[in-house]
Design a protein around this nucleic acid. Structure first.
Length: 586
RNA sequence: GACCUCGUAGCUCAGUUGGAUAGAGCACCAGAUUCCUAAUCUGGGGGUCGCAGGUUCGAAUCCUGCCGGGGUCACCA
């Protein structure tokens, strides 16, 4: 919970009092009233805009209204000073005793600190990765995978019931191409010279073992069989192998999904869910046979004007109606994607999040249109777009070409720099902004490598907790013991700065969860690390400011409490990002 | 042409859902430091928040129109 929530209540109570006194009209809305730590500590510990928000309704200038609010707040024993500033802000300075109470709360709550019931146990489906199951994962998939996973962690942290889901696109032409590629490898395994892999098929060596397994299991039986017979067999073998490989790749990054949802199962199951979905939309009058205008601004020679089965997505804000059936009679990707989201809805999810690559951003409107149509607005779908990742090595761009086989796989990336740095860097940028990833930089031990900087703070904190026993052997470092320390003795500005930062953690977490922006956690951790390093550095110049101060056992204990709390919050934040906190660096 | 997205310090980017004097890191400048709590520290300069309007107590943030970069644009996934 937010450590400042109580003060927000005080402000609202003060305003209620003013309503009661007739200063503020009863119907005035209190929604816009905030109470937040100001950016600049010069403005106190907390600031509220209450007077400015209510001034108009009350017909009184903001500062004058603030004069009425101030005495109502000043009586609070935890509030030291109340000042009116600027256009009508009310700035609160908290009693010195407040900060130790925050620290005590962190220690008491332990791993529960920052968690909340915000999500109220609501079921949320987070769909991410969803790479084509046709080969190993490469860096292009990596960002979305990490982002989705961290977002799922974050939502779980604030009390949502999260399902992590991977949509397996195993129904399209791509997987048939995969199956044919595997069939070649099967013939190869039986001793045939297959020559060059033809254009349009998958040339990668990773399919060889799949061919070999087929050869071992089926012998030469498939060689003379018609395609209609061997294709399903090779396809299912290939898909199985690819999913094992993908799951293994994801495992390298610490990603474990709850559900792998097969696109094919939508059609091949007991009933054709796509047909059902289309029928449902048809019943709503949203399906028709029609023609689409050719794309403007570019001349497409291949364009042919023809009638197709269309969904009226324009009625829900899309730019164009969208086709559901291909010329060959099969469903379009969009059609099965609608059925897939309908399936999620029928499984009970009213809240869904999809993580997509930037190249799919043009599909957002149609998907939301379809879901709105099917669920009559009862479901909420947020689609998060992850921008490209550009790879660098010591500042130089890494050239990648899929055709030349020089694209970097996720596995290579993780093998070289480690899962933690990969995850942290992927989250050290807003999801919809492009990201530069430098192999050299993420392993550098310097301040401009945020991964190192945050881990180093955690390692330093761990080191203090390890070493304090050498000076004070009987000084326990468990929370239950540290909580009894005389925390009022922490009054150095750098110490207070760290506590203030710790106090912000719950609201940062909540804001990140609400906006679906895990990067806010990364930036918070960097700031917390900076505060902690700042405190550490003061001890370099002034030995009496060191955490372990041999002349004063009780002061040491109070400081160790601060260190333990900082370490806890660093670990919690890293945990949300899915990064393992390090106890020492090498 | 349409839609989406971005535009903030020399560079890379944050910006608490509309708050006060717009912040970090690198780079630059000036000092400190050889310390073992190694993997630096302190301070400083640097800004038309792309441009122009609008909304209001208050705009980098919301609305409109331009300018510029990127992405997408029947059927593939």
């Amino acid at each position: 919970m937010d450590v400042f929530a109580g003060f927000h209540g005080r402000v609202l109570a003060a305003v209620q009092q003013l309503k009661h006194d007739g200063v503020v009209p009863h119907e005035a809305s209190l929604d816009g009233i905030t109470l937040e730590p100001p950016k600049d500590a010069f403005h106190g510990d907390l600031a509220t805009n209450a007077a400015m928000v209510l001034a108009k309704a009350a017909g009184v200038p903001p500062r004058q209204l603030a004069e009425r609010i101030v005495p109502l707040l000043a009586s609070d024993p935890h509030i030291d000073k109340v000042e009116i500033a600027g256009p009508g802000f009310i700035n609160l300075s908290l009693a010195p005793a407040f900060w130790p109470s925050v620290l005590r709360m962190v220690l008491e709550q332990g791993d529960a600190y920052g968690r909340s019931a915000f999500g109220e146990g609501e079921a949320v489906n987070v769909e991410y990765v969803s790479a084509n199951p046709t080969g190993p994962m490469h860096v292009g998939h990596c960002r979305g995978a990490v982002f989705g996973d961290a977002l799922a962690n974050l939502l779980a942290f604030v009390g949502y019931a999260v399902t992590r889901e991977y949509y397996v696109n195993d129904a399209g032409a791509q997987v048939d191409a995969l199956a044919r590629s595997v069939f070649l490898r099967y013939r190869e395994a039986l001793g045939e010279d297959i020559g060059e892999i033809p254009e349009g098929l998958y040339p990668g060596d990773y399919l060889k073992p799949v061919g070999e397994t087929l050869a071992a299991n089926h012998g030469r039986a498939l060689l003379d069989a018609p395609e209609s017979e061997w294709l399903p067999i090779t396809r299912s073998a290939a898909l199985k192998a690819m999913l094992v490989m993908i799951e293994d790749d994801l495992d390298q990054l610490g990603i474990h999904l709850d559900v792998f949802f097969s696109e094919r199962a939508l059609i091949d199951g007991a009933h054709d869910e796509v047909a059902e979905t289309i029928a449902e939309l048809k019943a709503k009058g949203l399906i028709y046979q029609g023609r689409l205008p050719p794309p403007k601004g570019k001349i497409d020679e291949e364009w042919e004007d023809r009638e197709q089965l269309l969904f009226r997505s324009t009625e829900f804000g899309d730019d164009q109606d969208r086709p559901l059936v291909k010329p060959d009679g099969g469903y379009t990707y969009f059609a099965s994607d609608i059925a897939y989201h309908r399936d999620k809805f029928r499984r009970g999810f009213r809240s869904m999040i999809d993580v997509w690559g930037a190249d799919h951003s043009g599909h957002i409107k149609r998907m939301q249109a379809a879901l709105a149509a099917l669920t009559e607005g009862k479901a909420h779908l947020d689609i998060k777009i992850c921008q490209l990742v550009r790879l660098f090595r010591a500042g130089e761009p890494v050239k990648m070409s899929k055709r030349a086989g020089t694209f970097v796989t996720l596995r290579e990336l993780v093998d070289e720099v480690g899962a933690g740095p990969v995850r942290f860097m992927m989250l050290y940028r807003k999801n919809d902004a492009p990201l530069d990833f430098d192999f050299t930089k993420v392993t550098e031990q310097s301040r401009d490598n945020p991964v190192f900087y945050v881990q180093y703070a955690h390692a330093r904190a761990s080191s203090v907790l390890r070493q304090v026993g050498e000076t004070f052997p009987d000084l326990g470092t468990e929370s239950t013991e540290l909580i009894r320390a005389d925390l009022d003795r922490l009054n150095d500005p750098a110490e207070i700065a760290v506590i203030r930062r710790l106090a912000q953690f719950p609201r940062v977490v909540e804001a990140a969860a609400q906006t679906h922006e895990p990067h806010r956690i990364s930036f918070y951790l960097f700031d917390l690390a900076a505060d902690f390093h700042g405190l550490w550095n003061r001890g370099k110049d002034l030995p009496q400011l060191r955490f372990i101060y041999e002349d004063d056992r009780e002061l040491t204990r109070a400081r160790v409490a601060l260190v333990a709390a900082t370490r806890r919050v660093l670990a919690l934040g890293l945990g949300i990002l899915g990064v393992h906190a390090l106890h020492e660096l090498h």
